[in-house]
Design a protein around this nucleic acid. Structure first.
Lengths: 206, 206
DNA sequence: TGGAAAACGTGACCGCGGTCGAATTTAACT
DNA sequence: AGTTAAATTCGACCGCGGTCACGTTTTCCA
C-alpha cells in the first residue's frame, strides 16, 4: 500500500511530540535535552531534526496543539450577549491561563510569537491570523451593537487589543503584576481606556 | 593608592564591551563566540563570567549604553510646542531607528525587555522606569494643554502607548511592516486610535 | 523478482555557552 | 620584608543543540 512510509512518519512525529509533552512538562524545556527526547521517543537524535528544524520548533508545535484546544473552547464559549470588552477579556484570559500554567513555556511562545526570527516568521503569522479570525466576528457584532467604530481597519483594532494584552502579559513577566487577577484588572482597564479614548471630552454616550 | 584593583576592573569591563561592540557589529551576535570575545579583549574566557552573568547580559549592557545616548538626544529634542502624538512618535521612532539599524540586536533587546527571565527582571524594570521618566513630563504637559485625560493612572497611559509601540515593532519583525515609514504610519494610526477611542461617538472637541 | 535509486535513520562529531578548582595576583597586617 | 588571606584570572572541561557522511530501508521499474 502507498502509505507505509507516511504512516510511520506520522507516528514518529507524534512520538516526538508525546515525548516532548512528558519531558517538557516534568523537567521543563531547558532541562530536557534532545538526546533524552530522542531516547524517550525511541529514535535516534539525528532523526528528530528531519521532523523539526530546531528544539524551539518542537516546543512551538507543542504549544500550538495546546492553544488549538484553548481556542476551540473559547470559540464555543463566545457569548454575543455580553459586551465586547467582556468577550475580549474572556478570550485573552483564556490564553493567559495557558501561559500562567507554565511561565517558562509561555515566555518562549510569546518571545517567538511577538518578535520572531526570520525563520519562524511564517509560523507566527499563522498564529496571528488565528487571532484575527477569532476576533473578527466579535468585532463585527460589536459594531452592529454600536460598541465599536466602523471607520477603522480591522487589523488595526485587532492589533490594538492584542498590543494591550501583550503589555499585560509583559507586566506579569516583569513582576509588576503578580496574580491572574492583577492581569485581569489591568487588562480591563486598558481595554476600557482603548474604547473610551485617552483624550478628554466625554462621549455622546456609552 | 586605594584603587589599583578598581581601576583594572573598570578597564577590563570596558575592554570586554569594546570587543563586544567590534565583534557584534562586524560578525553579529550569534556568530561571535565568547572565546573570541575574550581573546579580543586580551583576557581569559572564564574572566568574562566574573564581569557578566551570560552572553546576553554583555549584549544588554551594550544596548543600554547605546540607548542611553538615544534617550539623551531625545530628551533634548523634546519640543513642547508640538502635539503629544508627535512627541510620542519622535520618542518611539528614535528608539526604533536603533532597532532598525540592527535587527538582530533589537530582537534580543526587545525579547529580553518585554518578556524577561526572572534573572533579568530587575534590569528590564530599570529600562521601563526610564520610559516612565521620559514620558511623564510629556504627559503632564499634554494634560495642561487639554490633550489628555486627567483621570487615569499615569502608569496605565505609559503602558498603553508603549504597548502600541511594541505592536508596531512586532509587525516589523513579522514582516507585515517593511520600512521605517510603514512603522511610523501604523504607530501614528494606533496612537490616534488610542487618543480618540475605539468606541463610536465623537468627542466634544479635538 | 532483482537490483538500482531514492528516502530515511543514525550516532559520532563539532563548536558553543557556561563552570570550576587550581593558580596567580593584590591587599592587609605584623 | 615576610606572611597570609582574599580577590581575581584562567583554560581544561562539561553538556548541549545541531550537522553530516554513512548505513539501512523502502520504492520503483525493467
Amino acid at each position: 500500500m502507498a502509505g507505509i512510509r507516511e504512516q510511520k512518519k506520522k507516528q514518529t512525529r507524534e512520538a516526538i511530540l508525546a515525548a516532548a509533552l512528558q519531558l517538557f512538562t516534568r523537567k521543563g524545556y531547558e532541562n530536557t535535552s534532545i538526546d533524552e527526547l530522542a531516547r524517550r521517543a525511541g529514535i535516534g537524535k539525528g532523526t528528530i531534526y528531519s521532523y523539526f528544524q530546531s528544539k524551539s520548533q518542537i516546543f512551538l508545535a507543542f504549544c500550538e496543539e495546546q492553544l488549538e484546544y484553548v481556542y476551540n473552547e473559547l470559540a464555543v464559549k463566545s457569548d454575543s450577549r455580553t459586551s465586547l470588552i467582556d468577550q475580549l477579556l474572556t478570550l485573552f484570559m483564556g490564553e493567559f491561563r495557558f501561559i500562567n500554567r507554565n511561565k517558562e513555556f509561555g515566555r518562549i511562545l510569546m518571545r517567538e510569537t511577538v518578535f520572531p526570527k526570520d525563520l519562524t516568521g511564517a509560523r507566527s503569522r499563522e498564529l496571528d491570523n488565528k487571532y484575527i479570525d477569532l476576533l473578527m466576528p466579535l468585532l463585527k457584532e460589536a459594531q452592529k451593537r454600536g460598541e465599536l467604530r466602523t471607520d477603522i481597519e480591522y487589523i488595526l483594532v485587532v492589533g490594538h487589543f492584542y498590543a494591550l494584552y501583550i503589555m499585560a502579559v509583559s507586566g506579569w513577566y516583569m513582576g509588576r503584576l503578580l496574580t491572574e487577577e492583577d492581569v485581569y484588572m489591568v487588562l480591563e482597564s486598558l481595554f476600557s481606556q482603548a474604547l473610551q479614548g485617552l483624550a478628554p471630552g466625554r462621549k455622546v454616550e456609552a
